[in-house]
Amino acid sequence: MLPQFELYRPTNLLEACRLKAQGAVVVAGGTDVYVAMHGGKLRPQALVDIKGIADMQEATYDQNSGLTIGALTTHRTIEEWELVKQKYYALFEGCSQVGSVQIRQRGTIGGNICNGAPSADSVGPLLVFGAECLVVGEKGQRKVPLAGFFTGPKKTILADDELLYKILVPPPAPNSASAYIKYTRRRAMDLALLGVSIYLALDKSRIEELRIAFATAAPTPMRAYQTEAKLRGKDYRSISLADIGKMAAAEANPRSSWRASREFRLRLLEQLVQQAFTTALQRAEGGDL
């Protein structure tokens, strides 16, 4: 049995915000919340289950504005969405590698973001696609870049009354491609020991746009802004892959944990950046994805 709690199931967004402001813990798919409760790490007085809020379930695509993903959209829905595979391949790679089918069936993209884990598989891909968060509170809504959403391990900018409502992801350029490489010790059911996401737009051999994001390489998910800026506008044939790897890894700040040491992670990161870059490059030149 889970510890006792009061359960609220509002169908109205503002009602959910009010309950959250009063201290109720938000639950979406529960794949983080119920695990923490089973383990005794979380003993909430009250839970507010937001799954009854219908428009948070919707996910749509528009060729001008891109994806609008309701926070309650499950990883499984993203994984099975053909359009995501065609246009946002790294996001497909991220969501389809979360946990297992069972976890993806329940776990939501909003929960993945709000949980604030540096290892979150959907976050790196969303970062390189330039995603923004639509946040709603009792007094109204605001738009925040996902890159500014995380303030520390398991900490986000959400105020007491605020919920993540939708995630907005602009359409990728036609001459672009993306890749997410997740490094784990076993092939399934493992958190990313490291993750590298890349978005690359090419004009022949000139790097028109490059965005790089890391999972589990710092206290929060992060972008490698300096490396991106240094490479933007360059001919990719003029830079060695090894240099790209070194440059990007120098921006990371991983910690040592029982999974791996900081030193190992930094070395590995150099390799994964090269692998992700080459993969994105091949996809961009292949003209698909």
Binding site: L7, G30, T31, Y34, V35, K51, Q102, R106
Partner: peptide
């Protein structure tokens, strides 16, 4: 019709 972990879901859900 979809597989889920019944340990991570409330009966009331």
């Amino acid at each position: 019709g979809k597989p889920v972990n019944s340990c991570l879901m409330l009966a009331v859900e």
